[in-house]
Design a protein around this nucleic acid. Structure first.
Lengths: 328, 328
DNA sequence: CTCATATATTCTCATGTTGAGCATAAGAAA
DNA sequence: TTTCTTATGCTCAACATGAGAATATATGAG
């Protein structure tokens, strides 16, 4: 007979409100039953009833959060053995397919046990809107340095240094906003996130730093959900540049500043206002409605709308983040 | 009890030889047993033995073709019901995870029943190296036009026209080399590829054109493997621009022309030689070795090698295809 | 009413990048 | 030596990007 397989479906559902990116998370009791933790909305595929993966995902999300999905895009499929600790206890092999969904934030039915959480709570080192996060200079830099030095031999040390430099923009390398997953993966291996400790089979961190300072960066999520979130953020940042995705997060009309703040929230960096305007306006991404927004404390801003024709004119129209030209 | 699920693993394995992109395909008898067809190397995941999806994939490929995989990247997971016709006959629900792999072409063990096939045999409209393919002006344009006009009402016609224009670069829209999957999907829906007819439940094409000319474009593959190939080609073209992937397909040293021809084979367009040189040289992607290649019928070309340091300096270093700046 | 303040919008300018093509170099073959 | 072929080097116009000055139009304080 065939051993049991389960297809899990996970949704990273993103909205931007008050200039902050939010993740839709559900509360659940963890496997060991010892407490409550945050998780992505998710559920298994019913192989006999669900016609498509997306339909099944939508149904689970609807049931667990009451939210209706709009733009949905497949992210990645995770299939390592023992991803789900229940496998060790005789549970089925769970292969999970993760999706990214963009919605306009709406009030939640509190009874559902779901809530919107600022996603930088989970990945605090990814938010550069206020300048390079202090956490990078402090805990992360020093722990990485210890990890690099702890390499077996000279060549291992070199490889580790190259990896750390590329991931975190050290040693002359530039910071790359899209490398979110690589960074989380490295922090996990180095043992700087709570999940690393939790997943270690015998309570031992996989790569215990020489003198473990006990750093536990950011808020954890159930299972490997924080890793999935990292994938989602990286993908979203990358795609922003060549697809008009932002508009899925905005209402029909908006001011250019609101558009800019939304992009900044996702990209995690501040943009030059005048150049941003030039880009989206001359790039044909938006068109003015002639109407103005009232009372923002200064000169009223014109309301714009997404210009759908841009899809025909420029198949690869995005918002052009800084320093992300060809190389950089 | 849980209904049966099977995780299928498929590999799109790509090499470039003699300036042509090649797909590694295996010969197999089709489900109905009526004949032989080409398919991607593939096999199911063993949920109890295979530690990771990549390892399982590598083992299947090794067994079916004798080829060892180098660079491997996950593409997409396909899970629609009845993707695999055996499901209708009581077979398990097959969810397939597709991978893209890049290798340097090597002679095959003929006994293995695998061979290298020019991938433009399957997607002939994607090769623009000799100018806009005639097939686009002929069969495709006219069939698409019929399909557009066959829309239910005015708004359906408009939507169809927008979709056709965007996919195939008609009506003023530019051609976008990365939209490979969208194009195949549209041709499938319109009934222009053999798979559409084959998959139609009762022998009826899903959207029969008003007067079906019986056009069957390109060579078919088993199941939905041609769709998977289309995904792979699109992804590869996109990634070429911001990752130094090409070098996975080349030997340690190469002339700039060889590098250029390899990129052109993948991108399906011709590039300006001098500018290409400027890009990869000044972009720090390659460095000269000082050695020359002998006897190519003209001035000998210098041999270059990939400059690994570029990974540290410019996290997003690719080869910059034409017309693919920000928008265009 | 006038001014300070806040935000929106328009322009300029230096610098880089890209697309295109001319010019020169270095081999092989006639 | 000439011619052909490919490699390599250089120039130029057009366009895109980063930074910021200058101007416009609202609100609220005095």
């Amino acid at each position: 007979m065939t051993a049991a397989i389960e297809i899990g479906l996970n949704a990273v559902i993103v909205a931007v409100t008050d200039e902050e990116p939010r993740l839709l998370a559900v509360h659940r009791t963890d496997e060991v039953g010892s407490g409550s933790e945050l998780a992505l909305p998710s559920g298994p595929l019913d192989p006999e009833k669900d016609r498509t993966l997306e339909l099944a995902l939508g149904a689970w999300v609807q049931g667990q959060t009451g939210v209706e999905l709009g733009y949905v895009e497949q992210l990645y499929t995770f299939g390592n053995r023992f991803r789900d600790p229940r496998e060790r206890l005789g549970g089925p092999r769970v292969v999970s397919i993760a999706y990214l969904a963009l919605v306009r934030e709406a009030p939640l039915d509190r009874a559902a046990g779901a809530s919107w959480v600022n996603w930088y709570d989970f990945l605090p080192w990814e938010d550069w809107r206020g300048g390079r996060p202090a956490i990078l200079e402090g805990e992360i830099a020093s722990a990485l340095e210890r990890w690099v030095r702890a390499g077996e031999d000279k060549s291992a040390v070199r490889l580790r240094r190259e990896r750390a430099d590329i991931c975190f923009g050290q040693g002359g390398a530039p910071w790359n906003g899209e490398r979110v997953h690589d960074r989380f993966e490295l922090l996990y291996e180095v043992g700087l996130v709570a999940e690393a400790l939790r997943d270690a089979p015998q309570g031992a961190v996989r790569h215990p730093p020489a003198d473990d300072p006990g750093v536990r960066l950011g808020r954890p999520l159930a299972l490997d959900h924080r890793r999935i979130l990292a994938s989602a953020l990286g993908r979203l940042r990358g795609k922003l540049r060549y697809r008009p995705l932002v508009f899925e997060l905005l209402s029909g009309t908006f001011t250019l500043l609101r558009l800019q703040r939304t992009v900044e929230a996702l990209a995690g960096v501040r943009l030059h206002k005048q150049n941003f305007r030039r880009l989206v306006e001359q790039g044909g991404l938006v068109e003015g409605t002639g109407r103005l927004e009232a009372g923002t404390g200064g000169r009223p801003a014109e309301l714009f709308r997404f210009r759908r024709d841009v899809l025909r004119e420029r198949p690869a129209a995005g918002v052009g983040l800084p320093g992300l030209r060809a190389g950089a």
